[in-house]
Design a binder for these strands. Structure first.
Lengths: 240, 240
DNA sequence: CGTTGAGTTGACCATCGTCAACAGGAGTGG
DNA sequence: CCACTCCTGTTGACGATGGTCAACTCAACG
């Protein structure tokens, strides 16, 4: 695993090359052989986004679907009163548009410099119709997302602030580890407001709780992230 | 739509007959033609459950998958300290085992007399491998579930007790309406504890909030359910 | 060097959880 | 038939967790 995740690195507009793509085996593309990959590549268009750019908005006609190859994206829903619930963070390897529905079910904004492979939904859908093993892969991704969503329901419904933060940190660490290998330092390119809107808290409670965990020597707060000083203890908090 | 939902009615052990099944078009079976339906029927085994029986437990080897044809099932996860988060209520037409993973991701218990079609996961998986349109249907069900889960994240993370109850009532009403047509009376066969564990509240808060909504003439509390006295107002609460 | 935005910390308060008492219905047994 | 228990649900009193409002620091940026 030579892949590294650097959320601060700007994206290069390099020509797409699916065969050499670092994320291929992690993404839905991993289901395809070399010939199929070539066919899919001809449908793909690389897009890069600066931080805080909108990929799409909830309710908009879903013209494109995406595979993330670099960066991080916040996926969120807004309540009429303006409050926001982040339903997930998309990392490299993740697929946006699993439902292939007519409208997007949430909004998506880049958090850091981000690169995606964009496909026309119609073309991608037609491609999938001819590749049952790709559909199976999409289904696996969808059920994995569903499982993560159900885990997050437990976090939102049955954990206090400290448990929420611990579960968030350990969950993010594990996802990053699956991409780039293990580390005790967890990059947090998203804002405190993003974390709060993911965990059903306020920015102040996130800040206070992280400070409290730092005071207890569980974590060390570093620029754009935290270091786990006592990983076992944080894991225990995340489980309990 | 002649289907009626009666959650108190005991289940008859009638021989399965997929062609005449009321739930066929609502369930994943709706993707199949008559010949395929016959093949699937030969894999199916009808099971009935009394209230409060366990279908399967989180973490158990997933030997079976299910289509619900009658009744209601609570799907839940337990946290080590014994607290419970209900991640969904399965109604007729719903499919359990979408992930077709080795282990169940949550536990399932019947709430009322319940009937399901049970399939061996291995046999069902092999059947799906030969029917891409059935896989597509399963994928649609999975992404629909994912969408419901994301809606529930908003409810859990960003709504107060009254908003949670309103969203729960309207969401359940809409699901029942899709099966059996519209009604202003919403059957609530699950206990207050179930509702609390679904909404991230306590039983007392559920009871108090329903009482308060009744005092405001929004709803009328009836045995095993509520009647919407002011549906528009409750819908507004559910949205806002 | 002033402005802006993110983050932290403190004081106070409201919502919801906890603990407790009570009501009503179902089931059981004398 | 009545007494008893058990279970679910309701209601009240109180308290804790986390939200609100506000002040402050600090880094980035013009």
């Amino acid at each position: 695993m030579t892949v590294t995740l650097d959320f601060s690195k700007p994206c290069t507009h390099g020509r797409k090359n699916c065969l050499e793509c670092d994320m291929r085996l992690l993404s839905v593309c991993g289901a395809l052989d070399q010939t199929e990959l070539g066919a899919l590549e001809s449908l793909a268009q690389t897009s890069v986004f600066e931080p805080k750019q909108t990929l799409f908005v909830e309710g908009d006609p879903a013209e494109s679907v995406f595979t993330v190859t670099q960066g991080m994206i916040r996926l969120y829903k807004l309540v009429p009163d303006g409050r926001r619930q982040i339903v997930g963070f998309a990392l490299p390897g993740d697929f946006l548009g699993l439902a292939m529905a007519n409208k997007y079910g949430f909004s998506a904004e880049s958090i850091v410099p981000t690169r995606v492979c964009r496909f026309s939904r119609a073309a991608f859908s037609a491609f999938v119709d001819q590749k049952p093993h790709l559909l199976r892969r999409l289904h696996e991704f969808a059920t994995h997302e569903l499982s993560l969503a159900q885990d997050q329901m437990v976090v939102l419904g049955r954990r206090n602030a400290e448990g929420k933060l611990a579960a968030f940190l350990i969950g993010l660490r594990n996802r990053i580890a699956a991409i780039a290998g293990h580390s005790v330092t967890i990059a947090l390119p998203m804002s405190r407001q993003d974390i709060a809107d993911f965990l059903g808290l306020t920015i102040e409670t996130v800040s206070r709780t992280l400070s409290s965990m730092a005071k207890d020597k569980l974590i060390l707060i570093v620029p754009d992230g935290v270091r786990l000083l006592n990983p076992k203890a944080v894991e225990a908090l995340a489980e309990a």
